[in-house]
Structure formats: structure tokens, C-alpha cells
């Protein structure tokens, strides 16, 4: 990615197009997370919320991998899409996803990067807090839900965390190249 744009007036139409399309990588984290949101509407009809909260994990992972490309406002927009897709009152996932992205940003600037196991523990805590706040916000939005069935989702989400990390790491290597080089 070029930091400095070439002079706009010196480019012809084709170069401008190439310059703008050269920014496609900026959308990769958001697009991956939207894919995870979409995956959560899979035709798996079960009576308990057993499907892992892939979108939240995606936002957590991308906020650690690419902090500049998974800011709270991007997470907010993804959360709005999630609210519309999951038939939840508008604003619940939007608030909580933005909160998650902001939390990761503060945590990383304060305490730096960590080993995979530590991040897994932090993500597990974040998932528990997410479910508790979902419970509270659903009540605030006038659609109270019971809390205990959400424990299923906490369990499956904690188990699914390494899989989402593997997926995002693969996307990160393909789109942004090897970080170590």
C-alpha cells in the first residue's frame, strides 16, 4: 500500500482506476467479518442458540491483526448488518461490536501483544461479557430473553475461537503478505 498518493492531476483515467482499486485490501477485514455474520444464518435449526458468535470473534481477531482496519465505527456498521440479519432490535450488536473493537484497541495499546493462549482467555472473557450485555440490552430494547441458554453459545464460541483465528490468519497472509518479512 502506498502511503502517499501520486498527484491526482498527473494520472490518466486508467491510472486513477488502478489507484482506487489498489485500496481493496482496506475492505478485507470488514468483508471477512461480514462473511462470518452471514455464516451465522446457516440453515441449522436448533432450539438453543448453539451456533458460535463468529462475528464477535472475527471482530476481536481483526482488531488485533489490523487495528487500523477494524475500528469501532466499522464494527458498528457490521453490527447493524448483524442486527438486521438476526432479527434483533437495531443497535444491540452494533453497540456491542463497537464496544468490543474499542476494548481491544485500548487493551492492546495498554498491554501490547500476547501469546495465542492469553488472547484466547481474553476472548473468552469478552464473549461472556458480550452475552451478559446482550441479555441486558435485549431487556432494555423491550424484548427480554432468558440468560441461561446463552451459556451454550459461550461454550461453542470459546471452542470456535482457534478456528476463526486460523481463518483470519490465512486471509491476513494472503491479502497483506507475511508480517515477518
Amino acid at each position: 500500500m502506498t502511503r502517499h498518493a501520486p498527484p491526482w492531476r498527473l494520472m490518466n483515467a486508467a491510472e486513477r482506476r488502478r489507484y482506487w482499486w489498489g485500496h481493496w485490501r482496506l475492505g478485507v477485514p470488514a468483508a471477512t467479518t461480514l462473511g462470518l455474520v452471514f455464516a451465522m444464518t446457516a440453515p441449522l435449526v436448533v432450539p438453543v442458540p448453539i451456533f458460535p458468535q463468529l462475528a464477535l470473534i472475527g471482530i476481536f481477531v481483526w482488531a488485533t491483526f489490523q487495528p487500523g482496519l477494524m475500528t469501532p465505527w466499522i464494527a458498528f456498521l457490521i453490527g447493524l448488518v448483524a442486527d438486521l440479519l438476526f432479527a434483533q432490535p437495531l443497535g444491540i450488536n452494533a453497540t456491542l461490536f463497537a464496544f468490543a473493537a474499542g476494548f481491544v484497541r485500548v487493551f492492546e495499546t495498554r498491554y501490547g501483544h500476547h501469546a495465542h493462549g492469553f488472547d484466547w482467555a481474553v476472548a473468552a472473557t469478552l464473549i461472556v461479557v458480550f452475552e451478559l450485555l446482550t441479555w441486558q440490552l435485549m431487556a432494555l430494547a423491550g424484548k427480554p430473553v432468558p440468560l441461561l441458554p446463552l451459556a451454550w453459545q459461550v461454550l461453542t464460541s470459546v471452542v470456535a475461537y482457534p478456528l476463526v483465528v486460523a481463518l483470519c490468519a490465512w486471509v491476513q497472509r494472503r491479502a497483506f503478505g507475511d508480517e515477518r518479512s
Partner: peptide, 26 residues
């Protein structure tokens, strides 16, 4: 960045309250 993040989260909470008053909004 901090101001934008705070504003975004506040907007989200506001949307939740709007959804409470007007559930069929969207």
C-alpha cells in the same frame, strides 16, 4: 479516535432506545 468511538457506542445505545419505542422502525 476516542471521540469517534464514544460517539459510535452512544449512537448504538440510542438506537436500542429507539427500537424500544418503535420496534418496527427498520
Amino acid at each position: 479516535g476516542a471521540v469517534v468511538s464514544g460517539a459510535v457506542i452512544a449512537t448504538g445505545l440510542l438506537l436500542v432506545l429507539v427500537a424500544r419505542v418503535n420496534p418496527d422502525g427498520a
